[in-house]
Amino acid sequence: MTDQALIIQFQNGDSKEGAFTQLLKRHREPVFFQIKKMVLEHADADDIAQAVWIKVWNKLDGFKQESAFSTWLFRVAYNETLNFIAQKKRLNAHNNQNELDHTLEHPSSQNALRETEIQIKLERAIAELPEKQRFVFMLRYYEAFDYEKIASITGTTVGGAKANYHQAVKKMTELLQQA
């Protein structure tokens, strides 16, 4: 059954839960991994992913299928992730300490021992990218989404998405050379 058919099933109220769990099973992994690549912490990614799917449950009735379900889903994930990061930044500013930076500067001990220097540098470089550039980079590099889809997810133009990707690559390369 296609996503479209499952959405119609959900919207008609016939086996709402069944249709939803089908969609969830199909899309939960790429969405979760995208979020995790953005926030790095498993627990944070879990919280955001839960919030994303709850939003999907609440809003799917009003989804008009003007775009693909995955585009809409990633857009919800994008907004939730940015909201989470902004909230965390505010909280950390209040506590006078940046937890995300802390995580990246002191990666968990067991992992750190196994990680090569370049991996640690890369994580730092990724964390230093502006959120939008980071999100665009992950979608393009890891998910191989086309720029049109990325533009639609991040609410920008195709040119803007391309520029974001190239800026991200450039900055990462520069930051890795500096480090």
């Binding site: 979760f32 991994f33 995790k36 690549k37 790095l40 498993h42 992992n111 990680e115 090569t116 370049i118 991996q119 540098k121 890369l122 994580e123 990724i126 590099y141 890891y142 990462m172 390369t173 890795l176």
Partner: peptide
């Protein structure tokens, strides 16, 4: 960098 990106992905996919 590509190698590092690969291991970054692998790390992100650990659940």
């Amino acid at each position: 960098v590509e190698e590092a990106l690969k291991s970054f992905e692998a790390k992100a996919k650990q659940v």
